[in-house]
Design a protein around this nucleic acid. Structure first.
Length: 582
DNA sequence: GCCGTTTTCGGCCCGACTGTTTTCAGTCG
């Protein structure tokens, strides 16, 4: 039984206990679920290694939860969980996705009306029975129907790179009003999470006696924007709305003196904030969105730096704030200097109109120069991918001649820029490659990638990838897990083994920066960084405008704690090339 | 149910907003 399933069951137990009116147990289960989900090792393997005592080493897991995990590992079932489910057989996960509905209300609806699912809920609301339940009224009934409608329309979380233009547009519109002294999108957007659930906007206005008036003006400007489709809540300092492109947005207005505290708070993550608050508590202080306080006296609040520093911590970049060890590093002054958003010098994965891309090589060179890059690699698909018009050895050689011409034109124009010859060679089912070694050895950059047989077992898939890495001509594995966010699951891989073999063979692993790939993802990148495996951040462009997606790959690499020295295309070209010639 | 510079008991992050209530429980982030 894998960690995700164990974590989900623990989290559900927490919700059932909350329904039952328990006070602190739900949080204990929720916390344990979070740690299990974040484990590097399968709980089953921890248990086999050290038994129940080893399970108790997991943060938030004590005697009782360890026994429950043991039962799940041994029997695949958990009596305690089955009992809770039987006592209240409702689809909690589904129902609590409706805005405004939590465990307590769900319990009431189940007890009074027998509501078990969203479809039960819809019937109850439409027939006017919700309003008869104590604590509910006509408004609640309406809100529930609206919530159901929204749930039917929305497809869960939005992919950051695709929604970013809309986010920036809202941000720009609000800034244009010139009502706020500072305004910023915080939350998961600022942490560069690959998907986001909503937009958290933070604005500050001058404090003092006119604060209320200024804040109110800001709030009403926000809720009356053209994009606002529905207002969930609107108070003097906080409003929550649904935007017409299907995303929810929150605005908080705070006085300037609290901007740093509020930015810290609204950037999250929630777990990071809780950990910071606990540090404050241990010092006898209190941390909230208005500042860090000792009694009534404010110690810090104007900037995030001030607050971290007062807590005895180094500044932590937003992308690292997930409470997965960064606070401990900050206490030791060991936060790494992460690769920066301006650090990339080249892009090593680009598809052109020779295969399934729609822009030509020269256009890419032009666009990349305009973006300040110093090199790009052309890496079209190979013959096995017939639907893309993949290149065979002969067409690849012809493409090389065109690249030579383009490079000489660039040189004659006196520009320092180079187009590298490359390929995205297909990894076949058995791990062999789609092009002959004689063709590969002539190229500057050989990326290899899996595009077929996504359903092999973990063992087969891992051996397949390792065989590709063992080819001396392969420099980089492109999008190693093959996932497409919200569409395709990653292939099954023993990632630790892959990282180990990448280190041994000197193979680079990629962060494909395309918005719905971001592959490798953050947690796997951390493993690379720890093991000393180099990474490259590439756009996987199929059209010149897609070079802009590199920033998403950088964000993901920062979430994986990568430094400039870990990223081969953040280096000068001669260093990169000599590194690749192992 | 977990945990410990509050250490084996007594705490557990904190504040805004809503709807349905006449003072607050529930939800959210």
């Amino acid at each position: 039984m894998d960690n995700r399933i164990i974590a989900r069951i623990l989290a559900e137990i927490g919700e059932y206990l909350e329904m039952a009116g328990e006070n602190f147990k739900p949080r204990a289960y929720e916390k344990a679920a979070g740690s299990v989900a974040n484990l590097d090792e399968e709980a089953g393997s921890i248990y086999r290694r050290g038994g129940i005592k080893a399970l108790e080493e997991i943060p938030g897991v004590g005697e009782s939860i360890a026994e429950k995990i043991e039962e799940l590992i041994k029997t695949g079932k958990l009596k305690y969980y089955e009992k809770l489910k039987k006592a209240a057989p409702v689809n909690l996960t589904e129902l609590s996705r409706i805005e405004g509905l939590g465990p307590k209300k769900i319990k009431k609806l189940y007890e009074e009306l027998g509501v078990k699912s969203v479809s039960d809920l819809e019937r109850a609301a439409k027939s006017g029975r919700i309003r008869t339940v104590p604590g509910f009224g006509e408004k609640s009934e309406e809100d529930i129907l609206k919530g159901i409608e929204f749930l039917k329309k929305s497809k869960g979380r939005f992919i950051l790179g695709f929604i970013m233009p809309e986010v920036r547009k809202i941000e720009e519109e609000l800034k244009k009003l010139s009502l706020a002294s500072r305004l910023e999108v915080a939350g998961s957007v600022r942490r560069m999470k690959e998907t986001i659930g909503d937009i958290d906007i933070l604005a500050s206005v001058k404090g003092g006696k006119d604060f209320d008036r200024r804040a109110k003006k800001m709030m009403s400007a926000f809720t009356s924007m053209d994009e606002v489709e529905h207002i969930y809540a609107e108070g003097p300092t906080r409003a929550s709305v649904r935007l017409n492109f299907g995303l929810d947005a929150d605005l908080r207005v705070i006085p300037e003196s609290s901007y740093g505290a509020a930015l810290l708070y609204f950037t999250g993550s929630k777990d990071h904030n809780i950990a910071l608050r606990n540090i404050a508590i241990k010092k006898g202080w209190k941390l909230n969105e208005y500042g860090l306080f000792k009694g009534q006296k404010i110690i810090a609040g104007k900037t995030e730096e001030d607050i971290y520093s007062a807590l005895g911590l180094q500044f932590i970049p937003p992308e690292m704030r997930e409470n997965t060890g960064e606070i401990e590093l900050a206490a030791e002054e060991e936060i790494p200097k992460l690769v920066g958003y301006d650090d990339l010098r080249g892009d090593l994965q680009i598809q052109t109109d020779w295969t399934d891309g729609s822009s030509g090589i020269a256009d890419y060179a032009e666009e990349a120069m305009g973006k300040g890059l110093e090199y790009i690699a052309i890496t079209d698909h190979t013959k096995h991918l017939a639907m893309t018009g993949g290149l065979d050895e002969k067409r690849l050689a012809n493409q090389g001649k065109e690249i030579d011409k383009i490079n000489s034109r660039i040189r004659k124009a006196g520009k320092r820029f180079r187009v590298l010859k490359g390929t995205e060679v297909d990894i076949l089912k058995d791990g062999s490659l789609d092009l002959k070694d004689e063709a590969l050895v002539k190229l500057d950059i050989v990326g290899a990638a899996i595009h077929s047989y996504f359903n092999l077992s973990e063992d087969e898939q891992t051996r397949r990838l390792i065989r590709a890495m063992e080819n001396k001509n392969v420099h980089i594995i492109f999008h190693p897990t093959g996932r497409i966010i919200n569409r395709r699951e990653p292939i099954k891989l023993n990632i630790d083994e892959v990282v180990r073999m990448a280190k041994k063979t000197g193979t680079v692993l990629e962060v494909d920066a395309y918005p719905d790939r971001l592959d490798l993802k953050d947690e796997f990148l951390r493993k690379c960084v720890e093991a000393g495996v180099k990474i490259s951040i590439n756009s996987d462009s199929h059209e010149v405008s897609q070079l802009k997606y590199l920033y998403l790959g950088i964000g993901q690499a920062r979430r994986g704690w990568a430094k400039k020295s870990d990223v081969i295309n953040a280096w000068p070209l001669d260093k990169t090339l000599s590194f690749l010639k192992r």
